[in-house]
């Protein structure tokens, strides 16, 4: 039996790997991947809490399911916007997205 601490540690590591990736990656697609990592970390949390602590209900599982669907919709829009940028710049690096700045 795996302890709950291990699983929560896994999700925390995934979360912070995602945040690190979000802050350091130079390609918008890689940033999007990092965000997916963060969302999945939260999903793991829901599943783990539901399975280990509150096995009588299914609330956490359902929340995770809905989140996955929403994440898919978000990525679809984000990728559509990125394709639009790629059409105009032929590039996806965040270094190039500098027309609007302080």
């Amino acid at each position: 039996m795996i302890h709950i601490e291990c699983l929560l540690g896994l999700s925390a590591i995934m979360m912070f790997a995602g945040i690190y990736g979000f802050l350091t990656r130079r390609s918008t697609l890689a940033i999007l991947l990092s965000i997916e990592l963060m969302l999945n970390a939260a999903d793991i949390n829901f599943a783990v809490f539901n399975r280990m602590l509150f096995p009588e209900g299914h609330e956490g599982y359902f929340f995770a399911l809905f989140t996955i669907a929403i994440a898919a919709a978000e990525s679809a829009i984000a990728i559509a916007i990125m394709i639009n940028i790629y059409r105009q710049l032929s590039h996806l690096g965040v270094d190039k997205l500098t027309k609007l700045k302080f």
């Binding site: 965000i35 969302l39 956490g60 984000a78 105009q88």
Partner: peptide
């Protein structure tokens, strides 16, 4: 082009904030 750049900045940060929010909700759960 500006519109697309603004959209990209908006969606990436909106996603980032939703992910943080979601993690927070999972902890409350």
């Amino acid at each position: 082009y500006e519109s697309a750049e603004a959209g990209a900045k908006f969606i990436l940060l909106a996603l980032f904030s939703s992910a943080l929010l979601l993690y927070g909700i999972s902890l409350i759960y």
